[in-house]
Design a binder for these strands. Structure first.
Lengths: 214, 214
DNA sequence: TTTTATATCTAATAATTAGTTCAAATAATT
DNA sequence: AATTATTTGAACTAATTATTAGATATAAAA
């Protein structure tokens, strides 16, 4: 639609979803309709069109969207072409799992460092990287211009690690520790709380008719 | 406020958050105000009051909320007192991490079985449980009345596993595989896509001023 | 060429969610 | 006992988000 208008948060949240839907599409098809995308993403098709209109006028009436154009535009808008670097702090079970997770690299993120304070973990190799102590965080962040910090420590250390990350110039934090991090100006924080997700499911277990929020 | 009115999805999503805030509160305090809770949860205090009013008239004007009453009511409403049983399918790095994660048990969920198809994993012990092959899923689900299935397989197997779980009587699915599962009537599905979370962060990295959606 | 089916885009409307304001109730203070 | 500071709860208002309806463009079929 128009270029300089800012994209509503609710839409931003769905953009990665649409990207995933495109990946899930048969590779031989060249175009896709909002209806098809809506079916995959499980949202209303008008919603899809509105959301995509924020990226520009990408569709063709009577035809649909060109998949590769759409994918490029989504990647561009989400900043996936910037090649942001990230570090993971806390290399326990979850941290290791995140380090091994291929989806980050696939979407253009580079995990450039793993950090922990446990002497038993330091210098061990995880997913092809050597685990380093936190005192080396700053030099890593400077060297690789790290923009994103992923926290997978036990809850009690999470805030300290967050402060440390921010101090090292990290501008976004993805937090898996089950604690609420303090807000810091200009720092984006997203928290994924595994047990909270289960609790939401639990609510709807007793009420199978109701429609949940995503 | 009133008992039979259904709780808005946006509120349901915040209830586990409030529960977490209570845990984070000093244990010696007996009461808490909506303002304090709002500060911890990083939402508006009127929002807190409105959200909590769906659980009944729990607060006292001029005083605040009794912490233990509030906690009980939240746990009750979220169904955490039901002691739902869950299984994890896909015992790779992420599946193991989930199996080790203490937060599930802490919130009242019981992980009663781990399943995988890889012969190298079957019969191995993870987090005190023996990994079983999927053909034993049905008997487990019946024996333990499993309500929740957690999927941590590679994407390509996720839909098959989901179908299997549903076939075994599971009514809710928490999916960590980076694919979109088909909708099934009366089955609640929540997906946690790790790379999608990073992508949302990535969008705001280029636009540090904007306010993101939770 | 005309008609029909398809599908985007926009404007208008509806639904949901969030925030403001203020009356009422409590507890502490004067 | 009266006053003041708190703090909830509810009504009202505002903002955001989602859906519907209609106009327009494309492609295929008659």
């Amino acid at each position: 639609m128009k270029e300089n208008k800012q994209i509503p948060p609710a839409t931003v949240k769905r953009l990665p979803l649409y990207l995933q839907c495109l990946d899930q599409l048969k590779t031989d098809s060249i175009g896709v309709s909002s209806r098809k995308l809506a079916e995959l993403a499980k949202v209303n098709d008008a919603q899809v069109r509105r959301d995509l209109s924020y990226l520009g006028t990408l569709g063709t009436r009577g035809v649909g969207y060109d998949i590769s154009t759409l994918r490029n535009q989504l990647q561009l808008e989400l900043g996936l072409v910037e090649g942001w670097s990230a570090v993971i702090v806390g290399i326990g079970n979850l941290g290791s799992a995140l380090a091994h997770y291929g989806g980050f690299r696939e979407k253009g993120f580079g995990i450039v460092g793993l950090f922990d304070e446990d002497p038993k973990k330091i210098d061990s190799q995880v997913a092809g990287l050597v685990v380093k102590p936190l005192k080396e965080l700053k030099s890593y962040c400077e060297k690789f211009d790290v923009a994103i910090g992923i926290i997978a420590t036990p809850g009690q250390y999470a805030q300290g690690v967050a402060d440390h990350l921010i101090n090292c110039g990290v501008r976004s934090i993805l937090n898996f520790a089950p604690v609420l991090l303090k807000n810091t100006p200009n720092i984006q924080i997203r928290s994924v709380d595994l047990s909270q997700e289960l609790q939401i499911l639990s609510y709807y277990l007793d009420r199978p008719i109701l429609k949940a929020v995503d």
